[in-house]
Amino acid sequence: MDRISAVVITKNEARNIERCLRSLAGVVDEVVVVDDLSTDDTAAIAERLGARVIRQPWLGFGPQKNLGNAAASHRYVLSLDADEALDDTLRDAIRAARDGGLAGVYAVSRLNSYNGRFIRHGLEYPDRKVRLFPRDAATWDASPVHEGLVLPDGLPVARLPGHLLHYTYLRLEDTVVKANRYSTLAARELFERGRRVSLAKIAFAPLFTFFRAYVLRRGFLDGIHGLALACLHANSTLLKYAKLRELQREAAAPR
C-alpha cells in the first residue's frame, strides 16, 4: 500500500483549516502545512490536528507548494488549499487508489461554492485539477496567479470520482477584492510575456467571457448565482486587459 503526504499552503486560514484537515483524516499518512506567517490561529489549529507546520514567508503560489512537496516524507503528494476539503466519495476513491497501488497522476473535479451554494455550471465546473501525484515527477510552476503543475509527457492521468469542495466566494465583497488582486497579477504576467492588447479586445473580450460562462457553459442553470458569476468573470476579464493596456502606456511613455 502506498503512503500519501498532504501538502496545504496557508495564510490566515483559521476559519477554513480545520475543515480541510479533518477531511484528510484516514486518507493520508502525513499532513504538511506551509504557513505564510499567519497572524491568526491557523498554525495552532493545524498543529493541534496533527499537521507538521513549516513557517515560511511568502515565496509565491508555486514555490510555496514546491517547498511543501520537498518536505513531504512520502512518494505521493495530495495538494490542497486551505479552503478546500474532500467529500466522502473522493475520500473513498483516494483510499481505494492508495490500497490498490498508485500509478501516474490523479485528477479531481473541484466543486466551487459561491455565497453558500455549490455551482455546477458555468466556468466553475467541473474545474478539473491534478492534485495527487508522485512528488519526484511533478513541479508547480512560478506563475504569479493560477499556478500550474508541470508533468512529464506520457504520464497517465486517472480521474477520481467525487469532488474537491472549494469553499470560496463567501461574499460579493470578497470576490471583488480577489478579482482586483488576481487581475493585477495576470496583467503583469501577460506584459512580461510580451502580450499586448488592443482597445477592441478590451471592449469585446468581457462580452465573450460573459456569453461563454452564462450561455455556452449553461451558467443560467445556477439561477441568480450563475448570472452573478458570469458578470464577475466578465469584469475580471475587463480588469485584466485594461490593466495590461495601462502597463503598455506606462512602458511607452517618455522618460
Rank of each mutant, 00 (worst) to 15 (best):
A25L: 12
H146V: 13
S23D: 03
V105P: 02
V28R: 02
I94T: 00
V28E: 01
I202Y: 05
G50C: 07
R195W: 12
V197Y: 03
G116M: 06
D40L: 04
A251I: 10
T139P: 00
W140E: 09
R98W: 12
H74Q: 10
R218F: 15
R91S: 15
I202L: 13
K178M: 12
I4E: 08
L207Q: 07
D153C: 05
D87K: 03
N69L: 15
G122A: 07
D141Y: 08
D29L: 10
C20G: 04
R98V: 09
A251H: 08
A103N: 12
A158W: 13
S143A: 15
G101T: 10
L59Q: 12
V33M: 02
L239N: 06
V108G: 02
Q56H: 13
V7A: 06
E124G: 01
Y76Q: 07
L78G: 02
N180W: 14
D222Q: 00
A85Q: 04
L111V: 09
L151E: 05
L238V: 01
L86M: 06
N115Q: 15
D174N: 10
V53C: 02
N16T: 03
H146I: 11
C20L: 09
R131S: 05
L199P: 00
A103R: 14
G223V: 11
Y241S: 00
A187C: 08
L160D: 07
A25C: 03
I202Q: 09
R249H: 10
L221V: 02
C231G: 05
R19M: 10
Y241N: 03
N16E: 15
V215W: 14
G62E: 13
V32Y: 01
S109P: 04
D81L: 08
S73K: 15
P57W: 14
N115S: 11
N180D: 15
R245S: 10
G50A: 09
A213W: 02
D87N: 11
F220K: 02
F118Y: 09
G148H: 15
D153G: 11
V8E: 00
A187H: 00
F61A: 08
A103M: 10
D127S: 14
L170Y: 12
R171L: 13
G60E: 04
H121P: 03
T10P: 03
A228I: 09
I94S: 02
